[in-house]
């Protein structure tokens, strides 16, 4: 597989499904200005998953927010299918937003505690009316996709475990029929055995739906498990991408890999 090893090329359909081009994000003004992303280029080719690793404060979540349009870049562009989506406003922004969906870290905060699961999914299908009865079939299909029973639609978020809630959040993102999914630390808040359940689900969905995904995590092992290629972020810049596990070239990548606690080898049965 060829990896997008160079800086993001000029726009074009072949360049990748979702592309960040020279994206710079600055928070604050004047003397208190703080550059969070510095000339970041990243390409997510269609049908693949790109992993993004980095430590807290490296800017990976800001890049996720910029990708989905929740943060406006100071300069640079976000391209979806070669067309710029950053800087859109009004109805065109709304339309573009639906094509890229964000799944966030905290399963306690990502679902409205007062809203039944069915209505939350109905809202993803039809944001204006959000009528669960009108879309019952689609909701059931969405729940089945994440291995939940159709009667889950009648329940509230607090009746589910953290892993189940995260699966519901994934279902909500997918029933909106997005072209790209940005997953920001979606397993960090989960216990190990529950994380395995979500990672297996992602693996299945990637194979079945040919998902295009930007998968962000601080956990090198998790990123390696789900991604086709990996980029490493450090202090607001992408320092390395490609096969970082076999042949890390940047000193920071090597330090990151050396720091990861290694698990005892698989048992011999």
């Amino acid at each position: 597989m060829t990896l997008p090893a160079e800086k993001a090329p000029a726009a074009g359909p072949a360049a990748g499904k979702l592309v960040a081009e020279h994206v710079t994000v600055v928070f604050g003004h004047g003397r208190r200005a703080h550059t969070v992303l510095d000339d970041v280029g990243l390409t997510v080719p269609e049908g693949t998953t790109v992993g993004l690793v980095g430590e807290s404060g490296s800017g990976k979540s800001t890049l996720a927010k910029a990708m989905v349009g929740l943060v406006r870049p100071r300069s640079g562009r976000i391209l979806l299918d070669g067309a710029e989506v950053s800087g859109l406003r009004g109805a065109r922004l709304t339309a573009a937003r639906r094509r890229i969906q964000l799944i966030s870290q905290d399963p306690n905060s990502s679902l409205d505690p007062r809203m039944r699961i069915g209505r939350a999914l109905a809202e993803a299908i039809d944001p204006r009316r959000a009528d669960p009865r009108a879309h019952a079939d689609q909701i059931a299909a969405g729940l089945e996709m994440v291995a939940l029973e159709p009667d889950a639609a009648r329940r509230h978020p607090h009746e589910f475990s953290g892993g189940q809630r995260q699966r519901i959040a994934i279902a909500r993102a997918l029933v909106a029929r997005p072209e790209v999914v940005v997953a920001d630390e979606i397993t960090s808040a989960l216990d190990c055995s529950v994380q395995a359940e979500v990672l297996n689900l992602l693996a299945r969905l990637r194979a079945e739906l040919r998902l295009t995904m930007l998968f962000i995590s601080h956990d090198l092992a998790v990123v390696r498990h789900v991604s086709d290629s990996v980029a490493v972020m450090h202090r607001g810049a992408i320092v390395e991408r490609g096969d970082i596990y076999a042949a890390p070239s940047h000193p920071y990548t090597r330090r990151l890999l050396a720091s990861a606690p290694s698990l005892p080898p698989k048992e011999t049965r």
Binding site: A196, N200, A203, A221, H225, K266
Partner: peptide, 23 residues
């Protein structure tokens, strides 16, 4: 044993998407 099998690892599975054991 299930806990160990459920943890993704850096050393062995690099192919991406190998099934993890769930409980």
């Amino acid at each position: 044993r299930a806990l160990l099998d459920a943890t993704p690892r850096l050393d062995t599975d690099g192919d991406g998407g190998a099934e993890l054991t769930t409980i």
